Computed example of a mutant assay.
Amino acid sequence: MSIVLLQLRLRLESRNLKEKRAIVKSILSRARNRFNVACSETDFHDISDDAVLSFVTVADSATGGKRVMQDLESWLVEERPDVEVVELQVDEL
């Protein structure tokens, strides 16, 4: 069993915290449903155009978990052109 963590720092096209919350909430709920991951906003809560989102999955192997995270990142880039991935970190726990 392997636990894989993906942290994404995102630049958002939002002008205020209300718009940011709508974008973040949409990304998190769709990622949960599509990839069966646990996820949360973990940093920059009070900055309207920046966010750090963390995603965690448990898989049979590290390779399988990393593949889920790669698929999640690809999906986010394709699905949300209004969001720019500034930094990415993948860790096996």
Rank of each mutant, 00 (worst) to 15 (best):
S2M: 01
L5F: 12
Q7L: 06
L8R: 13
L8W: 11
L8G: 13
L10K: 07
R11D: 05
R11E: 11
R11M: 05
R11V: 02
R11N: 07
L12P: 10
E13Q: 14
E13H: 12
E13L: 10
R15S: 10
N16C: 00
K18L: 04
K18G: 02
K20N: 06
K20S: 06
K20H: 08
K20A: 07
R21P: 04
R21E: 03
R21T: 01
A22G: 00
I23D: 02
V24Q: 07
S26N: 14
L28R: 13
S29A: 01
S29E: 07
R30F: 00
A31P: 04
R32M: 03
R34Q: 04
F35H: 02
F35A: 00
N36F: 07
N36D: 12
N36H: 14
V37A: 03
A38E: 12
C39H: 01
C39D: 00
E41W: 00
E41V: 00
T42F: 05
D43M: 02
F44V: 03
F44M: 10
F44H: 15
H45I: 00
D46V: 00
I47F: 12
S48L: 00
S48R: 10
S48C: 08
S48A: 08
D49S: 11
D49A: 03
D50I: 15
A51D: 03
V52Y: 10
V52N: 11
V52A: 11
L53P: 07
S54D: 01
S54F: 01
F55D: 03
F55P: 04
V56G: 09
V56S: 12
A59L: 06
A59M: 06
D60Y: 09
D60H: 12
S61D: 02
S61W: 07
S61I: 01
A62K: 15
G64D: 13
G64H: 13
G65Q: 10
G65S: 04
K66M: 13
K66I: 08
V68M: 01
M69P: 05
M69T: 02
M69A: 03
D71T: 01
D71P: 00
D71R: 09
L72I: 02
E73P: 07
S74L: 04
L76C: 06
L76H: 09
V77C: 09
V77H: 11
E78G: 05
E79T: 14
R80M: 14
R80E: 13
P81W: 10
P81L: 05
P81D: 04
D82H: 13
D82N: 14
V83P: 15
E84W: 03
V85A: 11
V86Q: 13
V86A: 14
E87L: 12
L88A: 15
V90G: 03
V90D: 04
D91N: 15
D91Y: 15
E92Q: 12
E92M: 07
L93I: 01
